[in-house]
Design a protein around this nucleic acid. Structure first.
Length: 431
RNA sequence: UCCGGCGUAGCUCAAUGGCAGAGCGGGUGACUGUUAAUCACUAGGUUGUAGGUUCGAGUCCUACCGCCGGAGCCA
C-alpha cells in the first residue's frame, strides 16, 4: 500500500511506493515517456511515466495533463543523479483531479502588471513561494524573540478615532455616522499596555494613505511594535539590534534553500551581528557632508541620504538624536540637549532604507499636554493617552519594525510588493 | 501632487511615415531520459481611447486613460 507523503520528505522513502497530491508544474515528453514535474506545496519532484509500465488509460491521462492541473501520483521513489533534489518517482498509477484551463503564467518572462493581476496564481511560482516562506520565518522569529523575553502580546485596534501624527495620510471610514481612521501605528495603545504589563508587543497591519509610488511603499503593511516600561533610549536601541540580529540568524538557519532560490548573497547576511554602529544625528550629517551631499542641517533624511549613510557600513546602522522639530509630538526630548529628540531610526544596509523607527516617549504630563497643543491635536481625543502620564508615569520606550521592508532586505529583492501575499499600493487593489 | 518612461497576438517583444512579424503559450503530429526538452504543421490582431497632420499613421502632434520608475512623506 502506498504511503501519502510530502515531496520535501522524499529522501526518507527511497525504494518505497508513495502517493503525492499536487499540481502539474511542467511537463516534458519524449516518445513513450512523460516527465511530469509535480509540486505539492512543499517541493517539486519529477515523476516519470513510461508507457510500458502503466495502463493505457494512465498514459493517456499523463499525456492530456495541462500546466497546473491537479493530480495524485503513485509510484516508487528512486535515486537519480540527474534530478535536482536527488530523487524522482517512477509512476505506477496516476489520477487526475482536475484538468486546468489554459494557465496564464507561462515559463517565459512576464511584466509586473500582468503578474500582479494574477497574483493569486503567481504565488505558485518558486520565487514567490520562497519569499512568502521567508516572510513567515521573519514573523515567526520576531514573535519568538519577544515571547522568549516574556513580553505580552497585546494587539492594538485597527479602527482608531484619531491620528498619531496628523490626518493627511489616514484612510477615513464611515463608522456608524462618525469618522474612524485605519490605524497608522499601534504605539499609543502599546504604551497603555506597557503601563499594564511592563513589556508588551503588538503585531498587525497598519495603513498609510501616503501618495507614495516607490519600491519601498505599500498602503497596507505589517508592523511589530514592542513597548517597554522603565526603558530609556539606549536600552531601546540594544533591544532593536538584538531583535534584528535574531531575525536574520533565524532566516539563515531555517530558510537557506529559499535564500538560494532568490540568489541572495548570503555572506552579506552572515555579517549581521549586534552591536550595530550608532550615529548621533550630527555624525550622520557629517557623513553626508563628507560625501558631498547637499543637505540642510535640521532636516530629516531623505531616501538618498539614508542610502549614503547606510552604504558606509556592512550592517544596519542606528541614527539617534534627531532634531525634535522633525519628529513626532510624543517623543521625549533629551534633557541635556533639548533641541534633539530621544529618537532613533535603524537603516538597513544595501540601500533598503529605514526598517525601524523608535523613541523614548515623553512621560511628563505637563510637557506632553504642551506638545499636544503645539501640534494642534484635539486634546479630548488624547485624554486617555495623557492619563498614562497622570497615573504612575515611568520612563518608557519602544519601536516599530516594518515586516515587508525587513523581508525585502533579507531576501535581497528590489521591490517590497513581492514580500506580502496581496500587496496594496496606490494603484493596486486587485486581486 | 510633481518629474520621467512605456502602452502592438493570451504573454514577452520587433516593425526608416509605405504588405503588422517573431519567440513563448494554445491546438495537431513525431520521438524511450527530458531539464524553460527538441522538431514539423497550425490557429491567433479594432496596434490603450478620442481627435488631428499626411496621398498614406503602430510610427508624427494634442488630450485623456492605464501602468512602471523616482521625488516629497514614511516603516
Amino acid at each position: 500500500m502506498a504511503i501519502d507523503i510530502k515531496v520535501q520528505d522524499v529522501a526518507r522513502y527511497e525504494g518505497q511506493e508513495v502517493t503525492i497530491k499536487g499540481w502539474l508544474y511542467n511537463k516534458r515528453s519524449s516518445g513513450k515517456l512523460r516527465f511530469l514535474l509535480v509540486r505539492d506545496g512543499s517541493a517539486t519532484i519529477q515523476c516519470v511515466v513510461f508507457k510500458g509500465a502503466v495502463s493505457e488509460e494512465v498514459f493517456e491521462n499523463a499525456t492530456a495533463l495541462t500546466q497546473e492541473s491537479s493530480l495524485t501520483v503513485t509510484g516508487t521513489v528512486a535515486r537519480d543523479d540527474r534530478s535536482k533534489i536527488g530523487y524522482e518517482i517512477q509512476v505506477s498509477d496516476l489520477s487526475v483531479v482536475q484538468i486546468a484551463h489554459e494557465y496564464p503564467i507561462t515559463k517565459k518572462e512576464h511584466g509586473v502588471d500582468f503578474l500582479m493581476d494574477h497574483r493569486h496564481l503567481w504565488l505558485r511560482s518558486s520565487k514567490q513561494h520562497a519569499l512568502i516562506r521567508i516572510r513567515h520565518e521573519v514573523i515567526r522569529a520576531a514573535r519568538e524573540f519577544f515571547d522568549m523575553r516574556d513580553f505580552t502580546l497585546m494587539d492594538a485596534p485597527i479602527f482608531t478615532p484619531n491620528a498619531a501624527e496628523g490626518t493627511s495620510t489616514l484612510f477615513e471610514t464611515d463608522y456608524f455616522e462618525r469618522k474612524a481612521y485605519l490605524t497608522q501605528s499601534g504605539q499609543l495603545y502599546g504604551e497603555a499596555g506597557a503601563m499594564a504589563f511592563g513589556n508588551i508587543y503588538c503585531f498587525g497591519p497598519t495603513f498609510r494613505a501616503e501618495k507614495s509610488k516607490t519600491r519601498r511603499h505599500l498602503t497596507e503593511f505589517w508592523m511589530i511594535e514592542p513597548e517597554m516600561a522603565y526603558c530609556d533610549l539606549d536600552q531601546d536601541m540594544v533591544v532593536a539590534e538584538e531583535f534584528v540580529t535574531h531575525i536574520v540568524k533565524s532566516v539563515l538557519k531555517n530558510r537557506r534553500p529559499e535564500l538560494e532560490t532568490l540568489e541572495r548573497d548570503i555572506s552579506k547576511l552572515e555579517k549581521i551581528e549586534a552591536p550595530f554602529p550608532r550615529l548621533h544625528y550630527d555624525e550622520a550629517v557629517e557623513i553626508l557632508k563628507k560625501n558631498g551631499v547637499d543637505f540642510e542641517y535640521g532636516d530629516d533624511f531623505g531616501a538618498t541620504d539614508e542610502t549614503t549613510i547606510s552604504e558606509q557600513f556592512d550592517r544596519p546602522v542606528i541614527v539617534h538624536h534627531y532634531p525634535a522639530e522633525v519628529k513626532a509630538f510624543y517623543m521625549k526630548r533629551d534633557p541635556e540637549t533639548p533641541q534633539f529628540a530621544l529618537a532613533m531610526d535603524m537603516l538597513a544596509p544595501e540601500g533598503y532604507g529605514e526598517i525601524i523607527g523608535g523613541s523614548q516617549r515623553e512621560d511628563d504630563y505637563e510637557v506632553l499636554l504642551q506638545r499636544v497643543k503645539e501640534h494642534n491635536l484635539p486634546e479630548e481625543a488624547f485624554a486617555w493617552y495623557l492619563d498614562l502620564r497622570k497615573y504612575g508615569s515611568v520612563p518608557h520606550a519602544g519601536f516599530g519594525l516594518g515586516i515587508e521592508r525587513t523581508v525585502a532586505w533579507i531576501s535581497g529583492i528590489r521591490h517590497i510588493r513581492e514580500t506580502i501575499p496581496f500587496p496594496r499600493t496606490m494603484t493596486r487593489l486587485y486581486p
